[in-house]
Design a protein around this nucleic acid. Sequence first.
DNA 1: TCTTGAACCTCTAGTCACTGTAGAGATTAA
DNA 2: TTAATCTCTACAGTGACTAGAGGTTCAAGA
Lengths: 143, 143
Amino acid sequence: MNISIGGLAGRTGAKVQTIRYYEQIALMPEPQRTHGGQRRYEAGAVKRLAFIRHARLLGFSLDQIRNLLDLADHPGRDCTSADSIAREHLGAVKAKIAALNSLKKELTRMVKTCSGTDAAHCLVIETLANHDLCSSANHGVVT
Amino acid sequence: MNISIGGLAGRTGAKVQTIRYYEQIALMPEPQRTHGGQRRYEAGAVKRLAFIRHARLLGFSLDQIRNLLDLADHPGRDCTSADSIAREHLGAVKAKIAALNSLKKELTRMVKTCSGTDAAHCLVIETLANHDLCSSANHGVVT
DNA sequence: TCTTGAACCTCTAGTCACTGTAGAGATTAA
DNA sequence: TTAATCTCTACAGTGACTAGAGGTTCAAGA
């Protein structure tokens, strides 16, 4: 193996800077260096980074990923906490979907009725200015 | 009127620090001050801040809100751009919902089959380690 | 009028997960 | 050998706030 940081980036889809960042926050271990100071990675690094990127794509936070990696590094350990991290995240995703759906409804109502004339009679602006025109108790999402 | 920053916060649900932040980025105008230097707000400030908070609840960015406020300040102007800001935002919300739904599917599959034993056979960890076990082409969301 | 304590002030730094830049040095292919 | 490409460190910036330190002002009660 012994690939450069660019090679690792190419293999995993992560950016070079992102890899260095992961090393900085100790999510990736410090690799060996060449005589000239450049990083050289083993096969294990590709696996680990792929794990991280995949978990990021699924929306896990780096802190959650840190815990998941810790578990992955110790195969004998009880995996209940991995399960609960995933369940917790699933719950958050579901909540976000619900909030966004209520948002969508509101926005659709706002947009549908805009006649596109002057701002004085624009429903978009009017709705925003006047909370009563809106059914939003609280969408609970700030995107 | 002539209320303090705390009074304004109480009336709108914004935090005191947030109001000062909005002033700093020129989203809220600089209010009058008491002899001792404390902020005192007129009724217009309550309206404007309510507009901002409402728009934030609906997920608009501060930049979008800046544009919307500009339109609200000029009632004679054409409101097409307000409409298009709202439409654009609606599109983003819809896209996010779609991405989160595909995420939810994936996570549900991951979580459902976890037997809760040791990490060596944990599907959560296995799925993350092995991209092939996962149907995610790209969920497109990083939450 | 004086005292008290809650609310206010400014300023700075931190959050999350990166991304981008500058200027210098290392490596590789022709 | 030289040019092109890659990599290095260090730091600033993103969005939308939030938190804290350390000091000042205001309004209400005695």
